[in-house]
């Protein structure tokens, strides 16, 4: 498989604090990579290192098969569009003037500019001053400015932050369209729900460490959902399981966490042996949210 971004043991330390710890990111070309993690987990710092805005304390970044560093960055950055932390834009200029700036700076054709503006549906808002834009409009203008150079890779840091549900849906839809058009998108969020359905590959960061990386299916497979045992005597059944597995009562059923198929069979046999009537054993429905909370310890979300 070819990776458009790959890092080796990428780390950043500020003083004695390690804020990004030995990341081995693998972003397949053509995917939408959802980069998830609670606030302060190191998402922005990582993205800045991918763009060489911040130099790693140790480790390496490869983008499009080339090392990304201060010597190579300008060449590579011509193919990368990005939006880090807050959207860019000169408030005293109109949207159109801001876009024209980018056009002059990068020597772009009118069609490239028009297409970028239409992609974010900003063509009717360009005569307002950016100072008077809503946050959502600033985000979209920022994305248009990033898209104008027709990048192969788009790095967006929390583009849905502070947007209303309609604005969030609009960004999601935009990411899908870009991905269909062949752009690899890396998008971060501290809210799983915001990129859940758009991301094809997920990387989950917690305390600067990558605790999961893979597809959504792989994520489900990585964690075992709870087993729910239905019985007319849940209290009795629960006491029978004490010391054997982690169990608790849940709405008239017994919930057992973290057990595989073999242990499930042993648990059922044990309960039957103890004279408990069992009329149902099932795995709980697990949402991606649960898995995420599970992995990140539910902290700070």
């Amino acid at each position: 498989m070819s990776y458009i971004v790959a890092t080796e043991q990428l780390s950043k330390r500020y003083g004695s604090r390690t804020v990004v710890d030995s990341l081995n990111l693998r972003i397949p070309a053509g995917c939408v990579y959802g980069f998830l993690g609670p606030n302060g987990s190191g998402k922005s710092t990582t993205m800045k290192m991918l763009l060489s805005l911040v130099r790693p304390s140790s480790g390496e970044v490869q983008v499009m098969g080339q090392p990304m560093n201060r010597g190579t960055r300008r060449r590579l950055l011509g193919h990368i569009g990005s939006l880090i932390e807050s959207p860019p834009g000169y408030g005293h200029l109109t949207g159109r003037e801001n876009i024209r700036l980018v056009q002059r700076l990068l020597d772009l054709r009118d069609e490239q500019i028009d297409q970028a503006v239409r992609t974010v549906r900003m063509q009717d808002q360009l005569d307002k001053k950016v100072r008077d834009y809503s946050l959502g409009m600033k985000q979209r203008l920022g994305i248009a400015m990033a898209l104008a150079r027709q990048p192969r890779l788009l790095i967006l840091d929390e583009p849905t932050n502070g947007l209303d549900p309609a604005g969030i849906e609009e960004i999601r839809d935009l990411l899908r369209r870009l991905s269909d058009g062949g752009v690899t998108v890396m998008v971060s969020s501290h809210l799983l729900g915001e990129i859940d359905k758009t991301a094809t590959v997920l990387g989950i960061l917690s305390g600067g460490r990558l605790i999961f990386q893979g597809t959504r299916d792989e994520l489900f497979a990585a964690s075992t959902p709870d087993v729910l045992i239905d019985t007319p005597h849940p209290e009795y059944a629960n006491t029978q399981l004490k010391g054997m597995v982690a169990s608790r009562l849940d709405h008239g059923a017994v919930r057992v966490s973290g057990i595989g198929d073999q242990t499930t069979a042993r648990v059922v046999a044990h309960l039957v042996g103890a004279g408990v009537d069992i009329y149902g054993v099932r795995r709980d429905e697990q949402s991606l949210e649960d898995v995420f909370m599970d992995l990140t310890g539910g902290g700070g979300l």
Binding site: R74, G78, S82, P88, G89, G91, H92, L106, G142
Partner: peptide, 18 residues
């Protein structure tokens, strides 16, 4: 001054302009 505002610095430094 304008470059130190909002995301302008990051945008300036993450383009191909040397």
């Amino acid at each position: 001054r304008v470059e130190h505002r909002g995301g302008n610095w990051n945008a300036l430094m993450s383009g191909p302009t040397s």
